[in-house]
């Protein structure tokens, strides 16, 4: 795949600025979360997005408020793409009531119904059939809105993936499958778990249109996603997109990554999405350097503010333990011996 970014066609400077901002916020928030976890201030197991930022930034440009997004636990960039405020994301990571899920879900279960960030699953592959159901709902509602589901390369090995692809193709559902192929299924390299590392082939077997995309190139990501979203909005059925990039950190924010082949990581870091995008924006005179500096300052402040806010929020009260099991808490409370 081409190592250079292609020039955008008809993309407004504001869109480029938003994309750069999202990549930066993701990168900075990931880094700060890892530092907080290592310092013992953040109890959360969280899953860095580093390497996937370009795809997330492109998602941010194609998703409309009425579209639904289902994510898997490596989800910070997805949440930002759906315009979930970083304050509520971070408050959730710290287990506070002001979090997206009142502190009861944690980083693996971010959601925000007000923006169509419908759910995040912590179970690899499980989001696909759920997205199929959401797409079926959208289709029965009359169509026009899209459901997008994001998942890693590892998810293409599990049965839920295959069942969902079959349903989506059979019923021509308005769903876009976004495979973030970062080359690692947890700690196992793709060539050690997949007989063919070209995952798009697996989707093609279900007669679903597929495309293999350079996941480090935000413009290539954007074009592929735009095409898929147009197909969905015209009710032409599902698309499977395989975005090929590379995981730039360990599996979790604190996990060992010493096993990564050094040359592979170095090559991938050469294409680190945010700095590469920055260079490209300057080299092609797409954004003035002052604007870029301004975006960087805003991103840093946005991240600092979100962390400070999250740490200042209250923990859930003890009685929150028993709420939200069922709509009515009374039976749950009757089982409590307190």
């Amino acid at each position: 795949m081409d190592q250079t970014l292609e020039a955008p066609v008809g993309l407004a400077p504001d869109a480029l600025a938003r994309m750069y901002h999202l990549m930066l916020v993701t990168t900075l928030a990931d880094k700060k979360s890892a530092a907080e976890a290592k310092a013992g201030r953040l109890q959360a197991a969280f899953y860095p997005v580093r390497g996937m930022e370009a795809v997330c930034a492109a998602l941010g440009e194609v998703l409309r408020p009425e579209d639904r997004l289902i994510s898997t636990y490596r989800n910070l960039g997805d949440a930002l793409a759906k315009r979930v405020p970083l304050r509520s994301i971070m408050a959730e990571l710290y287990g506070r009531t002001e979090g997206t899920s009142k502190g009861k879900g944690g980083p693996m279960h971010l959601q925000d119904q007000s923006v169509g960030f419908t759910a995040t699953t912590g179970i690899v592959g499980a989001g696909l059939p759920i997205a199929v159901g959401l797409a079926m709902a959208a289709q029965m509602d009359g169509g026009g809105s899209a459901t997008v589901v994001t998942f890693g390369d590892g998810a293409t090995s599990i049965g839920a993936y295959h069942e969902a692809m079959n349903f989506a193709a059979l019923w021509r559902l308005p769903v876009v499958f976004v495979c973030q192929n970062n080359q690692w299924g947890e700690h196992t390299k793709i060539t050690d778990y997949a007989p063919s590392p070209e995952l798009a082939q697996r989707a093609a077997a279900y007669t679903i249109p597929t495309e293999r995309v350079d996941g480090f190139d935000p413009m290539a990501c954007l074009r592929a996603l735009q095409t898929a979203m147009e197909r969905v909005r015209r009710d032409e059925g599902p698309t499977f997109l395989e975005f090929v990039h590379y995981r730039l950190t360990g599996h979790t924010g604190t996990a060992d990554y010493s096993y990564v082949p050094k040359h592979e990581l170095e090559a991938a870091l050469e294409r680190d999405p945010a700095p590469t995008f920055r260079r490209w924006l300057i080299d092609n005179s797409l954004l003035p350097e002052e604007r870029i500096a301004e975006i960087e300052k805003q991103a840093e402040e946005y991240v600092e503010d979100a962390f400070a806010y999250a740490r200042s929020c209250a923990f859930p009260p003890p009685e929150a333990l028993y709420t939200d099991v069922f709509a009515d808490d009374s039976w749950v409370r009757s089982l409590s011996d307190e």
């Binding site: 759910a119 059939p129 079926m136």
Partner: peptide
């Protein structure tokens, strides 16, 4: 048959599709 659908033999996707439908207001 939009509301009453015979499905492939795939219990995981039957349940998962139901979960998605519920999240979509059905």
């Amino acid at each position: 048959t939009r509301r009453v659908r015979s499905t492939p033999i795939a219990e995981g996707a039957i349940a998962g599709t139901a979960v998605g439908l519920a999240l979509g207001g059905y």
